[in-house]
């Protein structure tokens, strides 16, 4: 079948099998930034945001998201060809990236968490990351990254408020 998907704010008309998962459709349409580690809903590396909420794209039928907002990590820097969003900056700076295979998922989860809860406790952070495996970092620097991301967002929020106030 064929339908219009909204991926990173853009409408993409895609041909797909009615039984295909969102992960398959995304990867087949060139969104290789979405990774695949188990295809069984158990590792989290395929995470995307669906209307702002993290989901395992391997467990979602593509047909069920037609017309809904799908965000991959590329959606965070859509207007910027070279830069990083503050959350991405934080991961790069704080050592939250080792192999980087889980990074797109971790960044999206962080982004979503901080948009709902700008000052999360350590426990909030760890719980938000539950189900998102990282075998490289031991989660220590991921925790640091999320905290740094929260600071960066707070600072940039202040900045932009200042801008607006001018």
């Amino acid at each position: 079948m064929k339908a219009d998907f909204i991926i990173n704010g853009r409408r993409e008309s895609l041909e797909f099998d009615s039984r295909a998962t969102l992960l398959e459709v995304l990867r087949n349409s060139g969104h290789r930034e979405v990774k695949s580690g188990c295809e069984n809903g158990e590792c989290g590396v395929c995470t995307v945001l669906l209307d702002g909420i993290p989901v395992n794209s391997c467990m979602v039928l593509a047909a069920s998201v037609i017309g809904r907002e799908v965000t991959t990590i590329r959606g965070l820097t859509e207007d910027d060809d070279t830069g990083l969003s503050p959350v991405q900056e934080a991961f790069a700076e704080a050592g939250g990236i080792q192999c980087g295979f889980c990074t797109p998922a971790k960044v999206l989860v962080t982004y979503s968490l901080l948009s709902r809860n700008p000052q999360p406790s350590d426990e909030d952070i760890m719980n938000a990351l539950d189900g998102n495996i990282c075998r490289c970092t031991g989660y220590v620097k991921i925790l640091d990254s999320v905290k740094l991301a929260a600071e960066k967002l707070k600072a940039s929020g202040k900045e932009s408020r200042k801008e607006r106030g001018k």
């Binding site: 930034e33 990590i73 590329r74 991961f91 790069a92 050592g95 990074t103 797109p104 960044v107």
Partner: peptide
């Protein structure tokens, strides 16, 4: 020094290619 990883920009953007990501 805690220099940033040389591949961190492309990994953080999701642009870095892993084996299965090549066309």
């Amino acid at each position: 020094k805690p220099v940033r990883k040389v591949d961190s920009l492309s990994l953080a953007r999701g642009e870095a290619r892993f084996t299965d990501d090549y066309d």
